Amino acid sequence: MLRCTRCGKTYPESFRLKCDCGGTLLVEREHYDFFGSLLNYLDMRRYLNFLPIGGNYIPPAVPAITPTVPLDINGVLAIFKLDYLQPSGSFKDRGTFVTVGKLMEEGIGEVVLDSSGNAALSFALYSLPAGIKAHIFVSYDAMPGKVSLLQRLGAVLHFVDGDRMTVHGKAEEFAKREGLTYVSHWLNPYFIEGTKTVAFEVYEQVGLPDYVLVPTGSGTLFLGLWKGFKELEEMGEISKLPVFVAVQASGYESLCERSTVKNNLADGIAIPNPPRLEEMRRVLEETNGLCVSVDEIETKGALSWLKRMGLLVEPTSAVVLSALWKLIETGEIPNGSKVLLPLTGSGLKLTEGI
């Protein structure tokens, strides 16, 4: 069932974005046996028993199980999760996979989505073999490489003059006016069901991390990781949750104090007013977590280091490394800690040099 995060009202598992009270929704199910419920696949279908999609509605494209790379950074074991190696080049494929499966189940063949690039690319790629027509709203400031890929994938592009919040509003207006289904990954509870599988994979690959550092704008990966580890705790697999660290772009912070200097390199998390803000605050409180802001110069430094390590990511991914350096320096992450750093988007989609 779906449960409202604000008032607690429940709904059947149909495609729905909000509660009648305006609150956001999460899928709520009981799971009992983690390892006993795994399926014999080497891709995301391994976790189908934990996902709200039926076996008859599996999208033709399936996200991969991505590798981890452990590196020692100043006495801390940094576990880089290479989710930029997904088919469309970002972790968004996980949420898209579950979303498209739900749309197939309900026979929805035309939808509206807004995105800074990665969610749009993911949805365009996965909707194409599923026969779903996708109207994608993007800002004129979207990275040219991503726009070019969207055009080649057959998406119907709608350009908006404004920031991410303006694009979001225009997409909602268009969907309502045209009578189409709006599939915002910011609001979509099924998207978070997909991103929670990162936690499942990490637990199978390296066990439970002490800290989880997440690039955080709308919170789809931040909340997905929390939900995945929370379900593992409820199944008795782990006894506590990792400490969650929300890493945000300076000038666009929603959880940290807002800076006056904007980090426009980390465009994937340039979301100052996310609709799931209260949920993210509750996660920080529950896990004794914290928020770290990263500026443009710090992002460039981390991006350069990652390239030298052979990790070709886009700037938004690099903010977690910069945050780790800061937290090691201040002693907030002590020596010997195991820290998860998801790398969320591929640098191969960038056409300009950074």
Score class of each variant (00 low, 15 high):
residue 128 L to D: 06
residue 8 G to A: 06
residue 134 A to I: 08
residue 5 T to H: 08
residue 229 F to P: 08
residue 287 T to L: 08
residue 177 R to Y: 06
residue 77 L to I: 15
residue 135 H to T: 05
residue 332 E to F: 05
residue 242 P to T: 05
residue 216 T to K: 06
residue 293 S to G: 08
residue 161 D to N: 11
residue 279 E to W: 12
residue 228 G to M: 11
residue 339 V to F: 01
residue 129 P to Q: 10
residue 232 L to G: 04
residue 185 H to I: 07
residue 29 R to S: 10
residue 196 K to E: 11
residue 123 F to E: 09
residue 294 V to D: 00
residue 45 R to T: 03
residue 115 S to T: 04
residue 253 E to S: 11
residue 203 Y to L: 15
residue 164 R to W: 05
residue 263 N to Q: 12
residue 89 G to E: 06
residue 320 V to R: 14
residue 192 I to H: 03
residue 341 L to V: 11
residue 33 D to I: 10
residue 172 E to K: 15
residue 1 M to L: 04
residue 73 I to H: 08
residue 13 E to I: 14
residue 194 G to A: 12
residue 247 V to Y: 01
residue 100 V to Q: 04
residue 255 L to Y: 00
residue 42 L to E: 12
residue 109 G to V: 08
residue 213 L to C: 09
residue 14 S to F: 10
residue 83 D to E: 06
residue 224 G to W: 07
residue 181 T to W: 05
residue 37 S to D: 10
residue 191 F to R: 01
residue 145 G to L: 10
residue 74 N to L: 13
residue 323 A to Q: 01
residue 177 R to N: 13
residue 8 G to N: 11
residue 310 G to T: 15
residue 177 R to P: 01
residue 116 S to C: 12
residue 144 P to S: 12
residue 156 V to D: 14
residue 164 R to M: 09
residue 295 D to G: 12
residue 311 L to P: 00
residue 309 M to A: 07
residue 70 P to M: 14
residue 239 S to Y: 03
residue 284 L to D: 00
residue 342 P to S: 09
residue 189 P to Q: 11
residue 121 L to P: 04
residue 231 E to Y: 09
residue 323 A to N: 01
residue 118 N to I: 01
residue 125 L to G: 09
residue 138 V to Y: 05
residue 239 S to W: 07
residue 141 D to I: 14
residue 20 D to Q: 13
residue 270 A to R: 02
residue 32 Y to L: 08
residue 41 Y to W: 03
residue 223 L to N: 03
residue 81 K to Q: 15
residue 156 V to L: 12
residue 48 L to C: 14
residue 267 D to S: 13
residue 114 D to W: 04
residue 94 R to M: 08
residue 142 A to E: 01
residue 17 L to E: 14
residue 105 E to C: 14
residue 280 M to P: 06
residue 289 G to Q: 00
residue 196 K to D: 13
residue 296 E to D: 12
residue 302 A to S: 04
residue 56 N to Q: 13
residue 229 F to K: 01
residue 141 D to L: 15
residue 176 K to Y: 03
residue 23 G to H: 07
residue 186 W to Q: 12
residue 74 N to E: 13
residue 87 P to K: 10
residue 302 A to K: 10
residue 55 G to Q: 04
residue 161 D to Y: 06
residue 292 V to A: 00
residue 116 S to A: 14
residue 230 K to V: 01
residue 239 S to F: 13
residue 288 N to Y: 11
residue 65 I to L: 10
residue 23 G to P: 02
residue 132 I to V: 13
residue 191 F to V: 05
residue 207 G to M: 09
residue 122 S to W: 07
residue 331 G to I: 06
residue 77 L to W: 10
residue 19 C to D: 05
residue 296 E to V: 06
residue 115 S to Q: 02
residue 115 S to F: 01
residue 260 T to R: 09
residue 173 E to Y: 12
residue 22 G to T: 07
residue 67 P to E: 12
residue 22 G to C: 08
residue 217 G to E: 00
residue 84 Y to K: 02
residue 219 G to C: 02
residue 178 E to I: 05
residue 207 G to R: 07
residue 81 K to L: 13
residue 249 A to M: 07
residue 99 T to S: 14
residue 37 S to Q: 12
residue 118 N to T: 03
residue 345 G to T: 14
residue 246 A to V: 03
residue 231 E to N: 10
residue 83 D to N: 15
residue 204 E to M: 05
residue 345 G to W: 03
residue 114 D to F: 08
residue 233 E to F: 11
residue 183 V to G: 05
residue 142 A to N: 08
residue 215 P to Q: 04
